[in-house]
Computed example of a mutant assay.
Amino acid sequence: MSVTEAVPAEEDNRDRWQDVRDLPPSAKLVAKVLDYNGTLTQSQLAEETLLPPRTVRYALSRLEEENVVESRFSFSDARKRLYSLQV
């Protein structure tokens, strides 16, 4: 792979996170954890990020406003929602 072929991939990665760039640090952390782990519940996100549940809720609401995360009901427990990154 030449250097010129690697540059567009880096630009794609920067563009991919454009919607997250101006969000609070907690939202960036939640987005990065979802990127690394895939789909998680809110309580799993709180455990992984070591953030309080209230902060995770706020981060998820900000990410949802930017259409960066998708949420759906859990089939195993309908009281919980599963969150996944959409960037």
Rank of each mutant, 00 (worst) to 15 (best):
D22Y: 04
F73L: 14
R81Y: 14
G38S: 05
S26A: 13
T41D: 06
S2F: 08
E5H: 14
N13T: 13
R57H: 08
S84C: 13
E65P: 02
P25H: 12
A78G: 12
A31F: 03
P24C: 02
L51V: 01
T39W: 00
S84D: 06
V69Q: 03
L82W: 06
E66S: 11
N13R: 15
V30R: 00
P25C: 06
Q86L: 08
L34H: 03
E70P: 15
A27F: 00
D22C: 00
V30E: 01
D22R: 03
P24T: 02
D12Q: 09
E70V: 15
T41H: 01
V56G: 04
R21L: 07
R72A: 07
R72E: 07
D77Q: 09
S71Q: 14
Q18P: 05
E64D: 12
A9Q: 12
Y36I: 12
E65K: 10
K32W: 09
S61V: 06
P52I: 03
V56Q: 02
L40A: 06
S71C: 08
K32C: 07
A27P: 00
P24Q: 05
S84W: 09
S26V: 08
V30M: 01
Q44A: 13
D22F: 04
L23G: 03
T55E: 10
D35Q: 13
A59L: 03
D15L: 13
S74G: 08
Y83D: 04
P8G: 02
V87A: 11
D22S: 11
P53V: 13
E70Y: 15
N67A: 12
